[in-house]
Nucleic acid binder design. Structure first.
Length: 417
RNA sequence: UCCGGCGGCUUUUG
């Protein structure tokens, strides 16, 4: 059995799932019964290939009792795809079957819930884990601190940090970065800066992540000079800016109309060995479109492709928005065709852009048609869609239509809740 | 046989 399991594991790891399943059949014929390890290996192979439904079926149909590893695999697979309800359902199911969750089970849930912004539930799982006498490791503490900090629950994050210390885990740069980035996200710039100062006094130099977070938030709040000062400071301290640091600054320049500065920083970035990626190109292109330089934006779009950097849906959204804002709907729709051909799927934002630009330009009918189309394609209109359309309808003296949409919005949002 | 670490880009209401 062990030999077969090892071989099956190897096949799964190299993505040869079909062969792995064949080998499993062969071992049965050789009257060697597959054991839980065999099935877990196959289930993991399926889950990693994104075939979660099949993975779940295999657990039920294998005739072998699932164990904690089986559940961990499936819960992780579901959580990775944001299917938290299904993951939590399996978690309950495993407890119903008297299978004890492991540290890993809790860790996966705390982290994945946190990633989907559900820090309250992360905390709930964490407490449940401790009730059961399970001792968290440093990773689990980090997942929880991250989840709490990201959702602005900084006091709670700090109290968990104290518990972590009491458990004998020393906080490190990453631990503090969770707090710093959390403060930045909550726009508590002074507090973030203060925390960094405290760490400096304690002899802990902020790393590139902390500096980038501070630079980013200063840029976003219009304090470009301070962002640039931090940029210089980090270099003096021997902390090398990376792609994300540059992208934040390029974005800040672009948003403030400083397109020349954005361009030259982009060049400096390349000269310093950072290969531009989609985000950095997008930030630069965005700045150009906002400055009305659609020609320059298009040139960069071409350059991006020529450099082997594949435009993503954000790239197209930026360009489509720039074009449609300028009233060039035909080129905008041409780009939609192009993204279609390239296999890049539009998202809710793409539709929002078109709907809002069309309605602002007075093409309310086309906008409403697109609204229907997006729903029929399975996209759920969000606040942007509704607010944009309602605003345009009101301004177009179609208050009744606006009211109907408003009611529809309320009906749908309560359904989602 | 199972997980996992922090920061960057786009759309409404000037």
């Amino acid at each position: 059995v062990v030999t077969y399991n090892t071989l099956i594991h190897g096949l799964c790891k190299s993505g040869k799932l079909d062969e792995a399943f064949k080998l499993c059949e062969e071992m049965k014929r050789a009257s060697c019964r597959p054991d839980p390890v065999t099935y877990n290996t196959l289930i993991d192979g399926l889950a990693k290939a994104g075939r979660l439904a099949e993975a779940c079926n295999l657990m039920e149909e294998s005739g072998v009792h699932p164990n904690a590893v089986t559940y961990n695999i499936l819960i992780n697979g579901l959580g990775k795809r944001g299917l938290m309800e299904d993951a939590l359902r399996l978690f309950e199911q495993m407890k119903d079957q008297a299978i004890d969750p492991t540290l890993l089970t809790y860790g996966i849930l705390v982290e994945k819930l946190g990633k989907s912004g559900r820090s309250d539930e992360s905390l709930r799982i964490f407490l449940e884990m401790r009730d059961k006498g399970c001792v968290p490791d440093k990773f689990l503490y980090h997942s929880l601190i991250h989840a709490l900090a990201k959702t602005g629950k900084l006091a709670k994050a700090c109290s968990i940090l104290r518990e972590m210390k009491q458990d004998g885990y020393m906080p490190d740069v990453t631990t503090y970065n969770f707090l710093i980035t959390g403060l930045c996200k909550a726009r508590k710039i002074a507090e973030a800066t203060g925390l960094v100062a405290e760490l400096k006094e304690a002899g802990e130099l902020p790393n590139v992540v902390a500096y980038s977070a501070l630079i980013d938030i200063h840029g976003k709040s219009g304090q470009i000079d301070e962002a640039l000062r931090l940029f210089e400071e980090m270099k003096v301290q021997g902390c090398t800016p990376d792609l994300l640091t540059y992208s934040s600054l390029i974005d800040a320049f672009g948003k403030n109309g400083r397109t020349d500065d954005a361009r030259s920083l982009f060049e400096e970035m390349k000269a310093n060995g950072c290969k531009p990626d989609q985000v950095s190109y997008n930030a630069l292109i965005y700045g150009l479109t906002k400055a009305g330089d659609l020609y320059g934006a298009n040139k960069l779009y071409l350059e991006m492709k020529a450099n082997g950097c594949t435009p993503n849906v954000v790239t197209y959204n930026i360009l489509v928005d720039g074009l449609s804002t300028a009233g060039d709907m035909s080129t905008a729709f041409g780009l939609l065709d192009e993204m279609n051909k390239k296999g890049c799927d539009p998202d809710v934002t793409t539709f929002n852009i078109l709907i809002i630009r069309l309605s602002k330009a007075g093409h309310l009918e086309s906008a409403c048609r697109l609204f229907e189309e997006m729903s029929s394609k399975g996209f759920v209109p969000d606040d942007f869609t509704y607010n944009g359309l309602i605003d345009a309808l009101c301004k177009g003296n179609k208050v009744e239509e606006a009211h109907r949409l408003f009611d529809q919005m309320n009906t749908h949002s309560t359904l989602v809740d």
